[in-house]
Design a protein around this nucleic acid. Structure first.
Ligand code: MN
Ligand code: MN
Ligand code: MN
Ligand code: MN
Lengths: 221, 221
DNA sequence: ATTATTTTTTAGTCTTATCTAAAATAATAT
DNA sequence: ATATTATTTTAGATAAGACTAAAAAATAAT
């Protein structure tokens, strides 16, 4: 199969390429992986030899169908392990990522499918991100950033954009959790902060916060 | 911490040195790890630099207290994961070892302690081997090989010596499981086979089988 | 006590994954 | 259009972990 490094590069390329049709650049990958562009070029050639990506010198890489499938399976494992850690082992949502980074590389189809069953075939991970199925398919939830809502709109908090432990711990402290109902009470033009009602409390959150919280809009009244 | 290779070598040295005070030889390690003696020498030097073993040229290695503790922790993780796979993910006891070989290298103290709790702090793994506690201590069960029992003796099957999947699958086929009561009905001097009563059935097992099954003796009547 | 055999170590090579520094190409500005 | 800057690739080095072949040390046999 693939080495740990190959899997990590592939996963990064998969994530970076998700919302764009053009290739992913060497520098982008280097920045995300905290490595040097020259190392990226080396690895890209290996991934290309293994038909995980298509590589054209100076033109960046595009993931292949095979590569996308392989990457989605790693993401599936990562997110299922995160659910396991939170649901079964009392981890908080800000503690799971590092451990899942390790667990996602364990090779055993039976393990991951049984884990899926043990957890009741969850569709989202603790941060609201979708869990791909065995074929690599998933349904992204329809969602909007809190910062883009208008006054009066309401919905349910269903995910985070930034899932750093700093942000997640901040949300814990503010008692903002996935599943909470949120209504926009007002918007302050001066600093773009937003006044919200959340679980019967009123709260003012900065634009930075509002730009990292995903809301599922309530349609109708 | 330690690399995957370092952990695997250390674990092997720990197991090989368990029942002997003299050092573990280079060749022994090479054989067990399916590698070359020269590779072992290289790695031994690294382990020695990290104070996991004491190395004297041509005299083999002895594990240090620090090394033993480190190794016991890896064994603890291996065996807890094996219990998890059997108890929670419907693995059979002959399927768990390979996956546990991967999982034992995951670094997260919280993960392993919570797993321990989820499983109800088991004392033995699916093959009857003892699970070290956080400090690396464990109580080996008092046990005898079935082959060493006399006619009339009885006890409970509590472990296997050989835990290859071939042997474990053979036991499954013969419906011999840990926890079964076993009584020695007779011994055949010609081929050293043993006639036993197990769970209300009578069975003749070869000496090879009897030399790989551990029995906890019933004292008293 | 030598000689022969086995075991262990050393020396040198290979692969993977990294890095720095320099060269090549692409993009941007004048 | 040419020069400047940014990006990307290549060349060469390093470290971990493995290997083969040869040398050195320890054991065993005569
Ligand atoms: Mn994560
Ligand atoms: Mn996540
Ligand atoms: Mn095992
Ligand atoms: Mn076991």
């Amino acid at each position: 199969m693939f080495t740990l490094s190959e899997e990590n590069y592939l996963k990064t390329i998969y994530h970076l390429g998700l919302n764009s049709e053009i290739g992913v650049s060497t520098n982008e990958i280097a920045k995300k992986m905290q490595t040097k562009a020259s190392s990226v070029t080396d690895m890209i050639k290996k991934l290309s030899d293994k038909d995980l990506v298509v590589y054209k010198k100076y033109k960046g890489v595009k993931i292949t169908d095979f590569g996308r499938n392989t990457a989605a399976n790693i993401v599936r494992k990562h997110r299922l392990w995160e659910v396991f850690l939170v649901e079964k082992l009392n981890f908080s949502w800000d503690e799971v990522h590092e451990v899942a980074e390790q667990l996602e590389h364990i090779k055993s189809p039976k393990l991951i499918n049984e884990l899926d069953a043990l957890l009741g075939f969850p569709k989202q991970d603790p941060h609201g991100d979708p869990i791909p199925d065995k074929e690599g398919n998933y349904h992204p939830l329809e969602k909007k950033l809190l910062a883009t809502l208008s006054i009066g709109e309401k919905g349910i908090c269903i995910g985070v954009n930034d899932s750093s432990s700093e942000f997640l711990q901040f949300l814990d402290k503010q008692k903002i959790a996935l599943g909470n109902q949120i209504k926009v009470l007002g918007k302050e033009p001066f600093d773009d902060s937003i006044q919200i009602q959340i679980a019967n409390r009123e709260l003012s959150v900065s634009n930075k916060i509002a730009s990292n919280l995903y809301i599922k809009i309530h349609h109708g009244s």
